[in-house]
Design a binder for these strands. Structure first.
Length: 475
RNA sequence: GGAGCAGUGGCUGAGCGGCUGAAAGCGACGGUCUUGAAAACCGUUAUACCCUUUGGGUAUCGGGGGUUCGAAUCCCUCCUGCUCCGCCA
Protein backbone atom coordinates (compact mmCIF):
# COMPACT_ATOMS: atom_id res chain seq x y z
CA UNK A 1 0.00 0.00 0.00
CA UNK A 2 1.07 3.54 -0.66
CA UNK A 3 1.04 6.38 1.87
CA UNK A 4 -1.96 8.48 0.92
CA UNK A 5 0.04 11.61 1.73
CA UNK A 6 2.36 10.83 -1.14
CA UNK A 7 -0.59 10.47 -3.46
CA UNK A 8 -1.93 13.84 -2.34
CA UNK A 9 1.44 15.46 -2.91
CA UNK A 10 2.08 14.00 -6.31
CA UNK A 11 -0.82 12.17 -7.90
CA UNK A 12 0.81 12.23 -11.32
CA UNK A 13 3.61 10.04 -10.05
CA UNK A 14 1.14 7.30 -9.20
CA UNK A 15 -0.80 7.63 -12.41
CA UNK A 16 2.45 7.10 -14.25
CA UNK A 17 3.45 4.20 -12.01
CA UNK A 18 0.20 2.45 -12.82
CA UNK A 19 0.54 3.12 -16.51
CA UNK A 20 4.12 1.91 -16.62
CA UNK A 21 3.08 -1.27 -14.88
CA UNK A 22 -0.04 -1.59 -16.99
CA UNK A 23 -2.22 -1.59 -13.91
CA UNK A 24 -5.63 -0.01 -13.78
CA UNK A 25 -6.39 2.32 -10.89
CA UNK A 26 -8.42 5.53 -10.87
CA UNK A 27 -6.23 8.02 -9.05
CA UNK A 28 -8.53 10.96 -9.74
CA UNK A 29 -11.44 9.13 -8.19
CA UNK A 30 -9.26 8.25 -5.24
CA UNK A 31 -8.32 11.89 -4.76
CA UNK A 32 -11.88 13.12 -4.85
CA UNK A 33 -12.97 10.47 -2.36
CA UNK A 34 -10.11 11.42 -0.10
CA UNK A 35 -11.14 15.03 -0.31
CA UNK A 36 -14.79 14.33 0.45
CA UNK A 37 -13.88 12.17 3.42
CA UNK A 38 -11.47 14.71 4.79
CA UNK A 39 -14.08 17.46 4.72
CA UNK A 40 -16.72 15.18 6.17
CA UNK A 41 -14.46 14.13 8.99
CA UNK A 42 -13.69 17.70 9.87
CA UNK A 43 -17.40 18.34 10.30
CA UNK A 44 -17.80 15.15 12.31
CA UNK A 45 -14.96 16.16 14.54
CA UNK A 46 -16.52 19.55 15.23
CA UNK A 47 -19.79 17.86 16.10
CA UNK A 48 -18.01 15.48 18.45
CA UNK A 49 -16.21 18.34 20.15
CA UNK A 50 -19.48 20.11 20.80
CA UNK A 51 -21.14 16.91 21.99
CA UNK A 52 -18.34 16.25 24.42
CA UNK A 53 -18.47 19.78 25.72
CA UNK A 54 -22.22 19.68 26.30
CA UNK A 55 -22.10 16.17 27.72
CA UNK A 56 -19.69 17.29 30.40
CA UNK A 57 -22.15 19.95 31.51
CA UNK A 58 -24.92 17.45 32.15
CA UNK A 59 -23.93 16.35 35.67
CA UNK A 60 -23.62 19.99 36.75
CA UNK A 61 -27.00 21.15 35.55
CA UNK A 62 -30.63 20.40 36.14
CA UNK A 63 -34.12 21.45 35.24
CA UNK A 64 -34.72 23.67 32.27
CA UNK A 65 -31.03 24.20 31.59
CA UNK A 66 -30.50 20.47 31.38
CA UNK A 67 -33.45 20.00 29.12
CA UNK A 68 -32.07 22.61 26.73
CA UNK A 69 -28.74 20.87 26.56
CA UNK A 70 -30.37 17.53 25.92
CA UNK A 71 -32.37 19.09 23.14
CA UNK A 72 -29.19 20.47 21.52
CA UNK A 73 -27.51 17.12 21.89
CA UNK A 74 -30.24 15.26 20.12
CA UNK A 75 -29.97 17.67 17.20
CA UNK A 76 -26.20 17.14 17.10
CA UNK A 77 -26.66 13.39 17.13
CA UNK A 78 -28.95 13.60 14.18
CA UNK A 79 -26.45 15.72 12.25
CA UNK A 80 -23.72 13.29 13.14
CA UNK A 81 -25.71 10.40 11.81
CA UNK A 82 -26.37 12.11 8.50
CA UNK A 83 -22.76 13.14 8.13
CA UNK A 84 -21.59 9.64 8.94
CA UNK A 85 -23.83 8.06 6.39
CA UNK A 86 -22.49 10.47 3.81
CA UNK A 87 -18.89 9.37 4.03
CA UNK A 88 -19.30 5.71 4.85
CA UNK A 89 -19.57 4.54 1.28
CA UNK A 90 -16.70 6.79 0.30
CA UNK A 91 -14.45 5.24 2.91
CA UNK A 92 -15.13 1.74 1.72
CA UNK A 93 -14.51 2.69 -1.87
CA UNK A 94 -11.33 4.53 -0.94
CA UNK A 95 -10.00 1.58 1.02
CA UNK A 96 -10.62 -0.64 -1.96
CA UNK A 97 -8.88 1.75 -4.32
CA UNK A 98 -5.90 2.18 -2.01
CA UNK A 99 -5.15 -1.51 -2.36
CA UNK A 100 -4.81 -1.06 -6.08
CA UNK A 101 -2.34 1.81 -6.16
CA UNK A 102 0.99 0.66 -7.56
CA UNK A 103 4.41 1.16 -6.07
CA UNK A 104 6.35 3.25 -8.60
CA UNK A 105 9.22 1.39 -10.18
CA UNK A 106 12.73 2.59 -9.42
CA UNK A 107 14.17 5.09 -11.90
CA UNK A 108 16.68 2.58 -13.22
CA UNK A 109 14.02 0.02 -14.11
CA UNK A 110 13.68 -0.24 -17.89
CA UNK A 111 10.34 0.67 -19.40
CA UNK A 112 8.65 -2.19 -21.20
CA UNK A 113 5.29 -3.75 -21.90
CA UNK A 114 5.86 -7.35 -20.76
CA UNK A 115 8.44 -10.03 -20.04
CA UNK A 116 9.75 -9.91 -23.59
CA UNK A 117 11.23 -6.52 -22.79
CA UNK A 118 13.16 -7.50 -19.71
CA UNK A 119 16.78 -6.49 -19.97
CA UNK A 120 19.63 -8.93 -19.65
CA UNK A 121 22.27 -7.85 -17.16
CA UNK A 122 24.83 -10.60 -17.51
CA UNK A 123 25.35 -14.29 -18.21
CA UNK A 124 27.13 -16.72 -15.97
CA UNK A 125 28.44 -20.17 -16.79
CA UNK A 126 28.98 -21.94 -20.08
CA UNK A 127 26.06 -23.32 -22.04
CA UNK A 128 26.81 -26.96 -22.72
CA UNK A 129 27.30 -28.14 -26.29
CA UNK A 130 26.29 -31.76 -26.79
CA UNK A 131 28.19 -34.18 -28.99
CA UNK A 132 25.16 -36.46 -29.02
CA UNK A 133 21.46 -35.82 -29.37
CA UNK A 134 20.34 -34.74 -25.92
CA UNK A 135 17.06 -35.86 -24.43
CA UNK A 136 14.68 -33.57 -22.61
CA UNK A 137 13.91 -34.00 -18.93
CA UNK A 138 10.67 -35.86 -19.58
CA UNK A 139 12.35 -38.45 -21.78
CA UNK A 140 15.16 -38.81 -19.29
CA UNK A 141 12.73 -39.01 -16.42
CA UNK A 142 10.65 -41.70 -18.02
CA UNK A 143 13.59 -43.78 -19.18
CA UNK A 144 15.28 -43.57 -15.79
CA UNK A 145 11.93 -44.16 -14.09
CA UNK A 146 12.35 -41.13 -11.87
CA UNK A 147 9.50 -38.95 -13.17
CA UNK A 148 5.94 -40.18 -13.74
CA UNK A 149 3.75 -37.52 -15.24
CA UNK A 150 1.26 -39.93 -16.73
CA UNK A 151 0.16 -41.30 -13.39
CA UNK A 152 0.35 -37.86 -11.80
CA UNK A 153 -2.24 -36.69 -14.29
CA UNK A 154 -4.28 -39.84 -13.82
CA UNK A 155 -4.56 -39.28 -10.09
CA UNK A 156 -4.38 -35.51 -9.67
CA UNK A 157 -5.29 -33.98 -13.01
CA UNK A 158 -3.32 -31.91 -15.47
CA UNK A 159 0.06 -30.44 -14.51
CA UNK A 160 0.61 -33.10 -11.85
CA UNK A 161 3.45 -35.57 -11.49
CA UNK A 162 5.19 -38.09 -9.31
CA UNK A 163 8.90 -38.05 -8.59
CA UNK A 164 10.19 -41.51 -7.94
CA UNK A 165 13.32 -43.12 -6.59
CA UNK A 166 16.37 -41.02 -7.40
CA UNK A 167 14.06 -38.41 -8.89
CA UNK A 168 12.50 -37.85 -5.50
CA UNK A 169 15.93 -37.95 -3.86
CA UNK A 170 17.35 -35.42 -6.28
CA UNK A 171 14.41 -33.13 -5.62
CA UNK A 172 14.94 -33.27 -1.87
CA UNK A 173 18.70 -33.02 -2.25
CA UNK A 174 18.46 -29.75 -4.16
CA UNK A 175 16.10 -28.29 -1.58
CA UNK A 176 18.17 -29.42 1.36
CA UNK A 177 21.35 -28.15 -0.23
CA UNK A 178 19.78 -24.76 -0.87
CA UNK A 179 18.55 -24.61 2.69
CA UNK A 180 22.00 -25.45 4.03
CA UNK A 181 23.57 -22.69 1.95
CA UNK A 182 21.12 -20.19 3.41
CA UNK A 183 21.66 -21.38 6.96
CA UNK A 184 25.40 -20.98 6.47
CA UNK A 185 24.74 -17.43 5.33
CA UNK A 186 22.95 -16.55 8.52
CA UNK A 187 19.35 -16.99 7.47
CA UNK A 188 16.96 -18.53 9.98
CA UNK A 189 15.44 -21.73 8.62
CA UNK A 190 11.68 -21.85 8.84
CA UNK A 191 9.02 -24.45 8.37
CA UNK A 192 5.80 -22.60 7.74
CA UNK A 193 2.05 -23.11 7.57
CA UNK A 194 0.84 -23.70 4.04
CA UNK A 195 -2.63 -22.41 4.75
CA UNK A 196 -2.91 -18.66 5.07
CA UNK A 197 -5.76 -16.36 5.96
CA UNK A 198 -6.85 -13.66 3.56
CA UNK A 199 -5.13 -11.03 5.70
CA UNK A 200 -1.75 -12.52 4.97
CA UNK A 201 -2.56 -12.72 1.28
CA UNK A 202 -3.56 -9.08 1.26
CA UNK A 203 -0.64 -8.05 3.39
CA UNK A 204 1.87 -9.45 0.98
CA UNK A 205 0.02 -7.92 -1.96
CA UNK A 206 -1.34 -11.06 -3.57
CA UNK A 207 -4.89 -9.99 -2.87
CA UNK A 208 -6.68 -8.37 -4.46
CA UNK A 209 -5.52 -9.60 -7.80
CA UNK A 210 -4.24 -13.14 -7.58
CA UNK A 211 -7.32 -14.91 -6.24
CA UNK A 212 -7.63 -16.82 -9.48
CA UNK A 213 -4.14 -18.22 -9.10
CA UNK A 214 -4.86 -19.47 -5.60
CA UNK A 215 -6.52 -22.55 -4.21
CA UNK A 216 -8.92 -21.32 -1.56
CA UNK A 217 -10.81 -23.41 0.94
CA UNK A 218 -13.32 -23.41 3.69
CA UNK A 219 -11.85 -24.91 6.84
CA UNK A 220 -15.06 -26.90 7.30
CA UNK A 221 -18.31 -27.47 5.52
CA UNK A 222 -20.38 -25.02 7.52
CA UNK A 223 -20.58 -22.47 4.78
CA UNK A 224 -20.79 -24.70 1.82
CA UNK A 225 -23.92 -26.31 0.56
CA UNK A 226 -24.04 -29.65 2.26
CA UNK A 227 -24.28 -32.35 -0.27
CA UNK A 228 -24.74 -36.00 0.37
CA UNK A 229 -21.50 -37.76 -0.05
CA UNK A 230 -21.47 -41.06 -1.80
CA UNK A 231 -19.28 -42.35 0.94
CA UNK A 232 -20.67 -42.49 4.41
CA UNK A 233 -17.61 -41.06 6.07
CA UNK A 234 -17.61 -37.51 7.33
CA UNK A 235 -16.29 -34.71 5.13
CA UNK A 236 -15.34 -32.63 8.11
CA UNK A 237 -11.75 -33.78 7.90
CA UNK A 238 -11.45 -32.63 4.31
CA UNK A 239 -10.85 -29.11 3.05
CA UNK A 240 -13.47 -28.03 0.57
CA UNK A 241 -12.58 -25.64 -2.19
CA UNK A 242 -14.29 -22.29 -2.14
CA UNK A 243 -15.67 -20.18 -4.90
CA UNK A 244 -15.39 -16.47 -5.33
CA UNK A 245 -13.34 -13.70 -3.89
CA UNK A 246 -12.91 -12.10 -0.50
CA UNK A 247 -15.90 -9.95 0.28
CA UNK A 248 -15.57 -6.33 1.24
CA UNK A 249 -17.87 -5.34 4.06
CA UNK A 250 -20.02 -2.57 2.73
CA UNK A 251 -21.44 -1.03 5.83
CA UNK A 252 -18.49 -0.93 8.13
CA UNK A 253 -16.24 1.97 8.76
CA UNK A 254 -12.51 1.74 8.70
CA UNK A 255 -11.68 4.72 10.79
CA UNK A 256 -8.63 4.67 12.99
CA UNK A 257 -7.31 1.61 11.28
CA UNK A 258 -3.99 1.71 9.60
CA UNK A 259 -4.52 -1.74 8.22
CA UNK A 260 -7.07 -2.89 5.78
CA UNK A 261 -7.98 -6.19 7.37
CA UNK A 262 -10.94 -4.89 9.29
CA UNK A 263 -12.84 -3.80 6.24
CA UNK A 264 -13.00 -7.26 4.84
CA UNK A 265 -15.59 -9.79 5.68
CA UNK A 266 -14.55 -13.38 5.95
CA UNK A 267 -17.77 -15.19 6.56
CA UNK A 268 -16.58 -18.70 5.93
CA UNK A 269 -13.16 -18.16 7.40
CA UNK A 270 -11.68 -18.97 4.04
CA UNK A 271 -8.06 -19.91 3.91
CA UNK A 272 -5.62 -20.07 1.07
CA UNK A 273 -3.03 -22.57 -0.01
CA UNK A 274 0.17 -20.57 -0.32
CA UNK A 275 1.73 -20.14 -3.72
CA UNK A 276 5.04 -19.34 -2.04
CA UNK A 277 6.57 -19.26 1.45
CA UNK A 278 7.00 -15.54 0.88
CA UNK A 279 3.51 -15.13 2.34
CA UNK A 280 4.01 -16.78 5.75
CA UNK A 281 7.60 -15.54 6.04
CA UNK A 282 6.88 -11.91 5.22
CA UNK A 283 3.67 -11.80 7.22
CA UNK A 284 5.23 -13.65 10.16
CA UNK A 285 5.42 -10.53 12.34
CA UNK A 286 2.36 -8.84 10.85
CA UNK A 287 0.69 -6.19 13.04
CA UNK A 288 3.74 -6.07 15.31
CA UNK A 289 6.13 -3.34 16.31
CA UNK A 290 9.65 -4.71 16.15
CA UNK A 291 12.68 -3.50 17.98
CA UNK A 292 15.22 -1.86 15.74
CA UNK A 293 17.94 -4.17 16.97
CA UNK A 294 16.02 -7.17 15.65
CA UNK A 295 16.54 -5.93 12.11
CA UNK A 296 17.38 -7.14 9.60
CA UNK A 297 15.35 -10.32 9.96
CA UNK A 298 16.47 -12.95 7.49
CA UNK A 299 14.43 -16.06 6.85
CA UNK A 300 14.87 -19.07 4.64
CA UNK A 301 11.69 -21.09 4.48
CA UNK A 302 10.93 -24.30 2.68
CA UNK A 303 7.40 -24.97 1.61
CA UNK A 304 5.23 -26.69 -0.87
CA UNK A 305 3.68 -24.16 -3.25
CA UNK A 306 0.28 -24.38 -4.89
CA UNK A 307 -0.71 -22.54 -8.04
CA UNK A 308 -3.84 -22.89 -10.08
CA UNK A 309 -2.20 -21.57 -13.23
CA UNK A 310 -5.59 -20.32 -14.30
CA UNK A 311 -5.36 -18.43 -17.54
CA UNK A 312 -2.23 -20.33 -18.48
CA UNK A 313 -4.19 -22.96 -20.34
CA UNK A 314 -2.11 -24.35 -23.12
CA UNK A 315 1.00 -22.53 -21.96
CA UNK A 316 4.08 -24.53 -21.00
CA UNK A 317 2.08 -27.71 -20.84
CA UNK A 318 5.07 -29.92 -21.47
CA UNK A 319 7.00 -31.47 -18.64
CA UNK A 320 7.70 -30.14 -15.20
CA UNK A 321 7.94 -26.45 -16.08
CA UNK A 322 4.51 -25.14 -15.13
CA UNK A 323 2.82 -27.30 -12.54
CA UNK A 324 0.20 -26.95 -9.82
CA UNK A 325 2.37 -28.05 -6.94
CA UNK A 326 6.07 -27.78 -6.27
CA UNK A 327 8.52 -27.20 -3.45
CA UNK A 328 10.61 -24.15 -2.92
CA UNK A 329 13.15 -22.65 -0.57
CA UNK A 330 12.40 -18.95 -0.33
CA UNK A 331 14.40 -16.17 1.30
CA UNK A 332 12.85 -13.11 2.90
CA UNK A 333 14.55 -10.06 4.37
CA UNK A 334 12.80 -7.57 6.61
CA UNK A 335 14.94 -4.48 7.16
CA UNK A 336 14.83 -0.86 8.23
CA UNK A 337 13.01 1.83 6.34
CA UNK A 338 15.91 2.89 4.19
CA UNK A 339 16.36 2.82 0.45
CA UNK A 340 20.05 2.09 0.88
CA UNK A 341 19.34 -0.91 3.10
CA UNK A 342 16.73 -2.22 0.70
CA UNK A 343 19.14 -1.92 -2.19
CA UNK A 344 21.88 -3.62 -0.23
CA UNK A 345 19.72 -6.60 0.66
CA UNK A 346 18.30 -6.79 -2.82
CA UNK A 347 21.82 -7.43 -4.07
CA UNK A 348 22.44 -9.82 -1.20
CA UNK A 349 19.44 -12.05 -1.86
CA UNK A 350 20.30 -12.09 -5.55
CA UNK A 351 23.82 -13.14 -4.82
CA UNK A 352 22.66 -15.84 -2.38
CA UNK A 353 20.74 -17.49 -5.17
CA UNK A 354 23.60 -17.10 -7.58
CA UNK A 355 25.84 -18.93 -5.15
CA UNK A 356 23.42 -21.84 -5.23
CA UNK A 357 23.22 -21.79 -9.02
CA UNK A 358 26.97 -21.66 -9.42
CA UNK A 359 27.40 -24.50 -6.96
CA UNK A 360 24.99 -26.52 -9.07
CA UNK A 361 26.95 -25.42 -12.13
CA UNK A 362 23.83 -24.48 -14.00
CA UNK A 363 24.43 -21.67 -16.52
CA UNK A 364 22.09 -18.75 -16.08
CA UNK A 365 21.55 -15.12 -16.80
CA UNK A 366 20.29 -12.28 -14.67
CA UNK A 367 17.67 -9.96 -16.10
CA UNK A 368 16.17 -6.73 -14.82
CA UNK A 369 12.44 -7.03 -15.06
CA UNK A 370 10.86 -4.17 -17.01
CA UNK A 371 8.02 -2.02 -15.71
CA UNK A 372 5.25 -3.90 -17.51
CA UNK A 373 6.27 -7.20 -15.95
CA UNK A 374 6.55 -5.84 -12.40
CA UNK A 375 3.93 -6.64 -9.80
CA UNK A 376 1.87 -3.95 -8.16
CA UNK A 377 4.07 -3.70 -5.12
CA UNK A 378 7.48 -4.28 -6.58
CA UNK A 379 9.89 -1.38 -6.99
CA UNK A 380 12.45 -3.47 -8.79
CA UNK A 381 12.90 -7.11 -9.61
CA UNK A 382 15.73 -9.29 -10.85
CA UNK A 383 14.98 -12.65 -12.39
CA UNK A 384 17.49 -15.43 -12.68
CA UNK A 385 16.89 -17.52 -15.75
CA UNK A 386 18.51 -20.93 -16.05
CA UNK A 387 19.57 -22.39 -19.35
CA UNK A 388 17.20 -25.17 -20.31
CA UNK A 389 18.44 -27.16 -23.32
CA UNK A 390 15.04 -28.59 -24.24
CA UNK A 391 13.52 -25.14 -24.34
CA UNK A 392 16.63 -23.79 -26.03
CA UNK A 393 16.40 -20.72 -23.89
CA UNK A 394 17.02 -19.13 -20.55
CA UNK A 395 13.90 -19.62 -18.43
CA UNK A 396 12.89 -18.09 -15.15
CA UNK A 397 13.86 -20.03 -12.06
CA UNK A 398 14.23 -17.20 -9.54
CA UNK A 399 12.62 -13.87 -8.86
CA UNK A 400 14.15 -11.32 -6.50
CA UNK A 401 11.74 -8.58 -5.51
CA UNK A 402 12.18 -5.34 -3.63
CA UNK A 403 9.07 -3.78 -2.12
CA UNK A 404 10.27 -0.93 0.10
CA UNK A 405 7.41 -0.44 2.57
CA UNK A 406 4.61 -1.56 0.25
CA UNK A 407 3.99 -4.90 1.95
CA UNK A 408 4.84 -3.72 5.46
CA UNK A 409 2.31 -0.93 5.20
CA UNK A 410 -0.38 -3.34 4.09
CA UNK A 411 0.23 -5.59 7.04
CA UNK A 412 1.15 -2.92 9.55
CA UNK A 413 4.61 -4.28 10.17
CA UNK A 414 6.67 -1.62 11.92
CA UNK A 415 9.68 -1.04 14.12
CA UNK A 416 10.59 1.61 16.66
CA UNK A 417 13.21 3.86 15.13
CA UNK A 418 15.76 4.72 17.78
CA UNK A 419 16.75 8.09 16.36
CA UNK A 420 13.28 9.55 15.92
CA UNK A 421 11.39 7.37 18.43
CA UNK A 422 8.86 6.94 15.67
CA UNK A 423 7.24 3.74 14.49
CA UNK A 424 8.36 3.26 10.92
CA UNK A 425 7.25 0.70 8.42
CA UNK A 426 9.81 -1.98 7.67
CA UNK A 427 11.09 -2.72 4.19
CA UNK A 428 10.67 -6.21 2.78
CA UNK A 429 12.37 -8.22 0.06
CA UNK A 430 12.28 -11.78 -1.14
CA UNK A 431 13.87 -14.13 -3.60
CA UNK A 432 13.71 -17.74 -4.60
CA UNK A 433 16.62 -19.79 -3.34
CA UNK A 434 15.64 -22.83 -5.33
CA UNK A 435 12.37 -24.18 -6.71
CA UNK A 436 12.07 -27.82 -7.55
CA UNK A 437 11.20 -29.67 -9.71
CA UNK A 438 11.60 -26.74 -12.12
CA UNK A 439 15.32 -26.63 -11.39
CA UNK A 440 15.49 -30.36 -12.16
CA UNK A 441 14.83 -29.50 -15.81
CA UNK A 442 18.24 -27.90 -16.39
CA UNK A 443 19.95 -30.25 -13.97
CA UNK A 444 18.74 -33.42 -15.66
CA UNK A 445 19.18 -32.07 -19.15
CA UNK A 446 22.60 -30.53 -18.63
CA UNK A 447 24.03 -33.41 -16.62
CA UNK A 448 22.85 -36.16 -18.96
CA UNK A 449 25.30 -38.54 -20.56
CA UNK A 450 25.30 -40.22 -23.97
CA UNK A 451 24.24 -43.51 -22.40
CA UNK A 452 21.07 -41.97 -21.01
CA UNK A 453 22.31 -41.73 -17.44
CA UNK A 454 22.49 -38.49 -15.48
CA UNK A 455 25.50 -37.44 -13.44
CA UNK A 456 24.54 -36.08 -10.04
CA UNK A 457 25.95 -32.59 -9.37
CA UNK A 458 28.83 -32.84 -6.94
CA UNK A 459 27.28 -30.66 -4.27
CA UNK A 460 24.18 -32.83 -4.17
CA UNK A 461 25.92 -36.15 -3.75
CA UNK A 462 26.24 -35.89 0.02
CA UNK A 463 22.46 -35.74 0.15
CA UNK A 464 22.16 -38.90 -1.97
CA UNK A 465 24.44 -41.36 -0.21
CA UNK A 466 27.37 -40.08 -2.30
CA UNK A 467 25.83 -41.55 -5.39
CA UNK A 468 27.44 -40.23 -8.59
CA UNK A 469 24.99 -41.18 -11.27
CA UNK A 470 21.36 -41.89 -11.89
CA UNK A 471 21.29 -44.81 -14.30
CA UNK A 472 18.68 -47.14 -15.66
CA UNK A 473 17.39 -49.83 -13.38
CA UNK A 474 18.73 -53.25 -14.07
CA UNK A 475 16.09 -55.26 -15.84
C1' G B 1 -18.15 -31.74 19.20
C1' G B 2 -19.88 -30.38 24.73
C1' A B 3 -18.95 -27.14 29.39
C1' G B 4 -16.60 -23.01 31.57
C1' C B 5 -13.11 -18.72 31.84
C1' A B 6 -10.55 -14.70 29.69
C1' G B 7 -8.87 -10.70 25.99
C1' U B 8 -6.77 -3.17 28.88
C1' G B 9 -0.61 0.81 26.84
C1' G B 10 6.42 -2.10 25.01
C1' C B 11 5.31 -6.00 29.12
C1' U B 12 2.67 -7.43 33.95
C1' G B 13 -1.79 -5.70 35.82
C1' A B 14 -5.91 -2.30 38.29
C1' G B 15 -10.39 -0.08 36.85
C1' C B 16 -16.23 -2.18 35.94
C1' G B 17 -21.34 4.22 33.51
C1' G B 18 -19.00 10.95 33.83
C1' C B 19 -13.32 13.10 38.10
C1' U B 20 -9.79 7.37 33.31
C1' G B 21 -5.98 7.99 27.51
C1' A B 22 -6.51 4.97 31.44
C1' A B 23 -3.71 3.47 38.73
C1' A B 24 0.58 0.62 40.10
C1' G B 25 4.89 -2.15 38.89
C1' C B 26 8.53 -3.58 35.20
C1' G B 27 11.22 -2.09 31.03
C1' A B 28 13.16 2.13 28.10
C1' C B 29 14.97 7.22 27.76
C1' G B 30 16.83 11.97 30.10
C1' G B 31 18.89 14.23 34.61
C1' U B 32 21.22 14.52 39.78
C1' C B 33 25.10 11.95 42.40
C1' U B 34 30.02 9.23 41.07
C1' U B 35 36.96 9.07 38.76
C1' G B 36 33.68 5.46 35.94
C1' A B 37 29.76 2.02 36.67
C1' A B 38 25.98 0.23 39.87
C1' A B 39 22.51 1.70 43.55
C1' A B 40 19.41 5.69 45.07
C1' C B 41 16.52 9.93 43.84
C1' C B 42 13.89 13.29 40.16
C1' G B 43 11.63 13.63 35.42
C1' U B 44 9.90 11.68 30.61
C1' U B 45 7.75 7.45 28.19
C1' A B 46 0.94 4.75 23.33
C1' U B 47 -0.92 5.35 18.23
C1' A B 48 -3.40 7.70 14.22
C1' C B 49 -5.72 11.78 12.19
C1' C B 50 -7.52 17.06 11.98
C1' C B 51 -6.95 22.46 12.87
C1' U B 52 -2.93 25.44 14.25
C1' U B 53 1.77 30.26 16.06
C1' U B 54 2.47 28.71 21.23
C1' G B 55 -1.34 25.32 21.37
C1' G B 56 -6.03 22.85 20.71
C1' G B 57 -9.33 18.94 19.03
C1' U B 58 -11.08 13.85 17.58
C1' A B 59 -10.66 8.66 17.75
C1' U B 60 -8.65 4.12 19.81
C1' C B 61 -9.03 -0.50 26.48
C1' G B 62 -9.61 -7.96 20.80
C1' G B 63 -13.15 -6.59 15.93
C1' G B 64 -18.09 -4.88 14.70
C1' G B 65 -22.94 -3.29 16.21
C1' G B 66 -26.31 -1.43 20.11
C1' U B 67 -28.23 1.04 24.88
C1' U B 68 -27.16 6.07 27.05
C1' C B 69 -26.71 13.10 27.19
C1' G B 70 -22.11 10.17 28.30
C1' A B 71 -19.17 3.28 27.86
C1' A B 72 -12.75 0.28 28.96
C1' U B 73 -17.11 -0.22 32.19
C1' C B 74 -24.06 -2.41 30.35
C1' C B 75 -26.30 -5.51 26.01
C1' C B 76 -25.71 -8.35 21.19
C1' U B 77 -22.44 -10.58 17.82
C1' C B 78 -17.90 -12.22 15.74
C1' C B 79 -12.71 -13.38 16.44
C1' U B 80 -8.70 -15.15 19.44
C1' G B 81 -6.58 -17.63 23.68
C1' C B 82 -6.85 -20.88 28.11
C1' U B 83 -9.04 -24.99 31.22
C1' C B 84 -12.05 -29.50 31.64
C1' C B 85 -14.79 -33.64 29.06
C1' G B 86 -15.37 -36.37 24.50
C1' C B 87 -13.24 -37.85 19.65
C1' C B 88 -8.96 -38.70 16.55
C1' A B 89 -3.68 -39.45 16.06
Amino acid sequence: MIDIKLIRENPERFKKAAMDKRIDVDIDRLRSLDDTIKKGKQILQDIATEKNRLGKLIPKTSGLEKATILEKLSILKEEEKVQNQGILGCETELARLMLLVAQPADDDVPYGKDDTENVELRREGQVRKFDFKPKDHVQLGVELDIIDIERGVKLAGSRSYFLKGDGARLHWAVLQFAMDVMIARGYTPMSVPLLMKDEAMRGTGYYPGSEEQTYRTYPDETNIEKKEEVTTSSTSQTYLMAEGQPVLKEGEAIRNKSTVSSIFDDPGGKINFVGTAEVPLTAYRMEEILEEKELPIKFAGMSTCFRREAGAAGKDTYGLYRIHQFDKVEQVVICKNSVEESNKYHEEILSNSEVVMRALEVPYRVVVVCTGDLGRGQAKKYDIEAWMPSRNNYCETHSASKFYEFQARRMNLRYKDSATKKNLFCHTLNNTVIASPRILIPILELYQNADGSVTIPKVLRPYMSDKEKIAKHKQ
